[in-house]
Design a binder for these strands. Structure first.
Lengths: 163, 163
DNA sequence: TGTGTTGGTGAAAATATATTGCGTTCAGCG
DNA sequence: CGCTGAACGCAATATATTTTCACCAACACA
C-alpha cells in the first residue's frame, strides 16, 4: 500500500514532468519523454500506467476543431434555478450532462447556479437547446446567454509544479 | 487539392466515426478503430493523418485530474471591461491567455465581455490571480466570481454526426 | 545488519504504426 | 461507350513503440 487516503500516492517531480509533457501531447514516445525527464523509457512507462490506474490521468483524448465539424457556435450560459432541492438539482445536472451539445457544465455558487459551455451548429440549434433544457424544465428560473466571439484559450491543461 | 475554402476537405461518415472514437480515447489502436468502423487499419491511418494535417484534429492530450495535482478549486469568472478598444482587448486577451492558472478564456457578447475558467490551489491563490489580472488592469471594470462546487461535466468533446 | 519495499535499468518480446505496391471503383470527358 | 486520372481500400512489410522481464541499487526500519 502506498499511503494517503484518496486512493492515490503522492506525485514526485518526475511524475509532474511527465504529466506536463502528456498534457501537451500524449503521443510523445515514452523514449522521448524519458530523454527529456532523465529516466529510462521503462520507468516512464511504469509511472504512466500507475498514474492512469490511480486516476491522476483522467483520460487520453484527441481534440477536434468544432468549426471543422459543423459546430461553429460556442455559447456560455448561466442558469438560475428556482429551487435548490437536491433531487431537483440532480435532475438538472443529469439533463445538462446528458445533452451532447453541452460540452461542459459547472455547478457554482454566487450569482448563478450553473454555467454551461455549449457548442451548436447554428443559433437556431441553440434556441432548440434552450427549449429542451431550460424552458422544458420548471426548475430553471432564468438563464443568460453569452455568445462566444473568440475562443481565446481552450483546453483542459492545468498548471503543474507551482502548487 | 481537395475542395472547400477553409483548407480542409469535407468529412465523411467514416471520418466522423473515427473522430468519435479518438475523442473518447486516442490511444485506441488503429486496428481496433478499423474493426469498429469497418475499414482497414491503413485506411484509418491515412484518414487520421489527413485530419491531423488539415487541422481537424487540434491535438492529442492527456487530461489530468486537477484535484490530484494540488488544484482543488475551479472558478468561473465573468469579466467586464471598461473600453472595447481593439488594442486594449488584445492586451487583455493576451494577459488572460498567458496566465497558466487560466485554463480557458472566452471573449463573449452579452452581459459580460470575458468568461474565464481558472484552476487554483487555494482561494488565496485566486485572490492573487484577481490582483494580477483584474486589479492590475485598468481596463477591467469589474468581475464576478462563481466558485465551482461540482464539475458536473468537463471535456472538449463535441457532438459529431448530428450536424 | 538483515530484510522488505520501492523504484531504476537494459534488453527482449509483443504490438502498433507507417509505408508501399497493387487492384478496384468511379467521375469526367473525348 | 470506353478511356483516363484520382482516390480509395487492401495486404504485406519495414520501423517504431509499448510492454514485460530479470536483475540491481537505495532506503526505511526492526
Amino acid at each position: 500500500m502506498r499511503d494517503s487516503s484518496d486512493g492515490g500516492g503522492r506525485l514526485d517531480s518526475f511524475d509532474l514532468a511527465i504529466l506536463d509533457i502528456l498534457q501537451k501531447d500524449n503521443g510523445t514516445p515514452q523514449r522521448v519523454i524519458g530523454e527529456r525527464v532523465n529516466l529510462s523509457s521503462a520507468a516512464v512507462h511504469r509511472r504512466m500506467r500507475r498514474m492512469q490506474d490511480e486516476g491522476v490521468i483522467v483520460g487520453n483524448f484527441a481534440v477536434v476543431d468544432p468549426r471543422r465539424v459543423g459546430l461553429p457556435f460556442t455559447v456560455v450560459v448561466e442558469v438560475h434555478v428556482e429551487s435548490e432541492r437536491l433531487d431537483l438539482l440532480d435532475a438538472a445536472k443529469r439533463s445538462f450532462a446528458d445533452d451532447p451539445q453541452v460540452q461542459q457544465c459547472y455547478y457554482v455558487t454566487g450569482e448563478a447556479d450553473f454555467v454551461l459551455i455549449v457548442t451548436v451548429p447554428s443559433m437556431s440549434a441553440y434556441e432548440a437547446l434552450t427549449r429542451r433544457l431550460f424552458f422544458g424544465n420548471n426548475n430553471v428560473k432564468r438563464f443568460r446567454t453569452l455568445v462566444v466571439m473568440d475562443r481565446v484559450k481552450t483546453g483542459l491543461a492545468v498548471t503543474l509544479g507551482e502548487a
